[in-house]
Nucleic acid binder design. Structure first.
Lengths: 235, 235
DNA sequence: AACCCATGCGTACAACGTACGCAGCGCGTA
DNA sequence: TACGCGCTGCGTACGTTGTACGCATGGGTT
């Protein structure tokens, strides 16, 4: 477990070359640039011009490092102040959270909340809950809305990020010489006719669609439902 | 990438001791029993009484093994036939998917769809989409409903599974001799008063609540919203 | 000047993923 | 029957990983 109290204080010695912040940033840069599996103690330390074992003065284990990275990234998901339009505010918060997940696809492998709540995660939570303040909801109702919204957004963005990652991996496959790529497995499944509904889901849309628009539309269904119980009906 | 065509056919030689099915099952048993990090080639092979390298006759890499496991587990999430009550049917499918995720918490670390769609994942998809057939929705609308629902359920269940895992890890910590556990970090954050809303979210409910009931209530909000657009209004 | 201790890191080891190549068995063909 | 071919299983080996241990260093305190 990360010691968040210690992580918040500045370094004890003046000649400290490393810091929690620098380590978290380095880890995030490695993960964004070279993929989640490249986040090794040695590579992150190299990125900082330090020795691998130096990181252990700040972090108990590799898992702790990942927790540190996740908390730091959640600072990017802090929602702006409320405007009084709950629907617009929640939509904005959802966009920000989705964008963070797509910008850091490795969150699919180590979620923001995997290591408990760090300081930035707390701030992010508070900022989002604040958007729900002032509509006569009690705290339990606000939590209902918040947990429902976050579950949808994280689930949705994780699936999107995974599809993008899979696509990227397939693209960087060098397409070996004389590959004779027959019909893909999913093509043959679709052609079998035994999965009339699923085929359409697996093969993707006929015409390209705007992922952001699709997200907004589906988010809208959820907000409609929340409106029905907690606000004055949909739209 | 897993070769699903090959994985579907029975073994070529009669004297084959291993099989795709046995390997996937062994991997799942190791993951369920000893945690996701214990899923190593050697441990899974040991579980089968086989040598580590034997697995590579069936699987290209450890990642392939995980894909195999994920597809096999998705067979547990196949929805029952439709009854004509869309809301009850979708609720049932959501329960099943949530249960699978809670039963195999490692899905949080390697999602069902991480390795593309295998045969069981296709069947599961078809079974869920079938629940939406017969209400006058076209395929794109059915996909809207399905993707929205799955995003919520997987996001929600993943968060639940992660909280349970974290709790379990903390419980098996031996509570070292003379531990002097002062107030936890979250306690001090809550006591600071600077996060009035988030504190309540982080410390958990005052009285114990039934997680299943809470899930149903929040799922209900989403279904209300879907009803508003695709069916004849909420409830 | 003397000491202390937080910091950085070199070394070492067990465990990991996996490339390579060989052993052995059963089937098809002669 | 005899033979050989191909599929299956796996022993060995190597590079990489996480991390325990202990030492060197040098600014701050006394």
């Amino acid at each position: 477990m990360v010691n968040w109290e210690k992580a918040g204080r500045p370094a004890r010695a003046a000649r400290a070359a490393l810091s929690y912040d620098a380590i978290a940033t380095a880890g995030i840069e490695v993960a964004d640039g070279q993929g989640f599996d490249a986040v090794t103690m040695r590579k992150v330390a190299d990125h900082l011009g330090a020795g691998a074992m130096s990181l252990y003065r700040y972090v108990d284990s590799r898992d702790d490092l990942l927790d540190l990275m996740a908390d730091r990234v959640s600072a990017e998901a802090i929602a702006p102040p409320r405007t009084g339009d709950w629907r617009a505010d929640l939509t904005g918060a959802a966009h920000i959270l989705r964008d963070v997940t797509l910008r850091h696809p490795w969150l699919t492998r180590h979620a923001i909340t995997a290591g408990g709540f760090g300081p930035n995660t707390v701030t992010m939570t508070e900022s989002t809950l604040t958007l729900l303040d002032g509509y006569g909801l009690d705290i339990d109702e606000m939590l209902d809305v918040w947990r429902t919204l976050v579950a949808f957004v994280q689930g949705y963005a994780s699936a999107e990020a995974q599809r993008l990652e899979a696509h990227r991996r397939r693209a960087e496959q060098p397409a070996a010489d004389g590959d004779e790529t027959g019909p893909s497995y999913l093509d043959t499944v679709a052609a079998s006719g035994r999965y009339p509904l699923a085929s359409r889901a697996l093969l993707g849309p006929k015409r390209p669609v705007d992922p952001q628009q699709t997200f907004d539309r589906r988010l809208g269904y959820l907000l409609d439902g929340l409106a029905h119980t907690f606000f004055a009906g949909p739209r």
